[in-house]
Design a protein around this nucleic acid. Structure first.
Lengths: 329, 329
DNA sequence: TTTATTTGTGGTATCGATTCCACTTTCGGT
DNA sequence: ACCGAAAGTGGAATCGATACCACAAATAAA
């Protein structure tokens, strides 16, 4: 591997001059610059980032912690993050917790030892240990998807969007709205959305029925199971519609409903959250909440870059959303 | 930031001893080890990877070059890669070319300047410049998805699987099989699969008809367009089935067929490639080729690790596949 | 007891860059 | 013709680790 010393020797200058030339700071004569560039061209020299960042304390690398990469939401978010980072000459160091919460903390430490300039965490919980790890981090950390007090977080408008969708269903004439939620370990999805569902019903003086409400685990199969449970446990008084907190579970729910030879949305309407590709092409196409994941990722990345540049606002940013009205409601 | 020198000072030893202790090589007394560990615990010290890798020439980072991360195939492959790498203490440095071929070469250089220990490239072409860049790389490069002569490549059994699927269709009684392919810039998908289609027809003495064959651009919409073209250009003698080289385009094709009020597979059967989630839940569920992307990613990662360990076989590995027989054929 | 060998430790060079400082040369202004 | 500033360059310290080497102390073998 050729180093800056080789370049200096071949171009007959000192390595200080080469460095100055490459970083465009300080004075370098046209003559010297030309010779240096030629030698670099010939040798195909590339400066060692390890050496550079040892000296400058900057790596140009951002750590990203994901619950699961092979998920449409995650990969979309990463895509948005990447767009912004790449435009700013940063690269992504990827880690995947496989949904293990302890790994989130582990990776925050690992990434720091790898000298990343900042960390983006797709949040799945608000555990005290996690908050502490974030608080103690030596580099900026921005969280997407959960509101974390000690740092900047970009959150989805879970409450607002859920409420909006429920009201849309009410307007459409559905008054017996069921709900398939997620575990409370995930505050944003598990708690906030359910709370918004309940509150919106209350606001419109619609009674809440326990047997219409179930909690799934994000898997498509779980949507199927929970829908089945709702229907079986409420034979006397069935819901006329159901709001599901993820598209995937909604797909499972639809599968069950179809198997029972019921019509969507005539016999039972289904609304969901996520705007997955699948939601668009399933039969019937799903009315769902689009959280614009790429955009959210981009925003998060921009927040991190701002934080790195010292504009540490430690703010909470609520992202936008839109309702995709299709054929399931 | 606390460094190894701080630890040495606080534990009353030299930094050599701290290093030996941390890397478990050379002799360290129980007494010294205990003191060092205590100090490390107290300070939360983490060794700087920049310094470490400047010295050792190893970063523990693998560069991954993707055509597009927000794609089910890519994210699945990355998931498989990550499983293997994480188990071996490696991290992924992610880059995304947004399908620009020049960026592949750019990233090969960029990743090297970032001192990655190896590179995995999800191949989209076999251009001479790319092959040259791979050949000149200073670190092992393993390519997935295209056969590149100068290095180890893991390839999907495009020909075999396509042929298998066409024969399955023939057995089912479809003799007028159309084809929606991809551009020839992608040799594996664009050339190999089409060649296998033609050869399999020939083998069974079935004539090939130009107006039943179209080339799309991977997008769902393009599948729709190309299916439309086939149907409109062959009004006199329509195909009774079509093989599509990606699931997404098949989804588009199905959409068009449904719009024409034709039945699948009764009026026209559709077979595809990719085993996407979508293919499973669309109506009718797609008969498709599953290339087991996670597994392919894992295999590729393992090949790279082998290459890093000096077992540079420079071999071609053909991955497995399976046919998923569902309801569209 | 003497001689090897094992165990334990610190000193120092090194990896490949950046950056500050000192020094020389060139040049414009008076 | 002189002086001060700008332009151009190299030397040396530094970043935070590793690893080789020399050496001392403890232990084992003769």
């Amino acid at each position: 591997m050729t180093t800056i010393n080789d370049i200096a020797r071949l171009a007959n200058v000192s390595r200080s001059t080469v460095s100055r030339c490459l970083n465009d700071n300080g004075y370098v004569s046209e003559d010297a610059r030309k010779r240096i560039m030629e030698v670099i061209e010939e040798t195909g020299y590339m400066p060692s980032q390890s050496a550079k960042s040892l000296r400058t304390k900057k790596t140009g690398v951002i750590g990203v912690i994901l619950p699961k990469i092979s998920t449409e939401t995650a990969s979309r978010v990463v895509s948005g993050i990447n767009d912004v980072l790449q435009a700013n000459q940063y690269q992504i160091l990827l880690t995947d917790t496989s949904l293990q919460k302890t790994k989130e903390i582990e990776f925050i430490r690992l990434l720091q030892s790898r000298n990343v300039d900042g960390i983006i965490l797709l949040g799945t919980n608000k555990d005290q240990e996690l908050i502490q790890a974030i608080d103690q981090a030596q580099v900026p950390v921005v969280v997407l998807g959960q509101e974390i007090p000690v740092t900047t977080s970009v959150v989805y408008p879970d409450a607002q969007a859920t409420s909006h969708m429920i009201e849309f269903m009410l307007e459409k004439g559905y008054k017996k709205i069921g709900f398939i939620g997620a575990p409370e370990t995930d505050p944003a999805v598990g708690i906030t959305r359910k709370k918004a569902y309940k509150e919106t019903l209350a606001k419109h003086a619609i009674s809440y029925r326990d047997e219409w409400v179930q909690t799934g685990d994000f898997a498509i199969e779980s949507g199927y199971e929970k829908m089945k449970q709702i229907m079986e446990e409420s034979k006397d008084q069935r819901p006329d519609s159901v709001f599901v907190v993820t598209d995937n579970m909604a797909v499972g729910a639809i599968q069950y409903i179809k198997e029972q030879n019921m019509q969507i949305p005539k016999d039972i309407a289904v609304a969901a959250t996520g705007a997955s590709t699948l939601s668009q092409y399933i039969e019937p196409s799903l009315t769902t909440i689009d959280f614009l994941n790429e955009e959210a990722g981009a925003t998060t990345a921009q927040c991190l870059l701002d934080a790195i540049d010292g504009k540490k606002a430690r703010k909470k940013m609520e992202h936008t959303y839109r309702l995709l009205i299709r054929n399931s409601v």
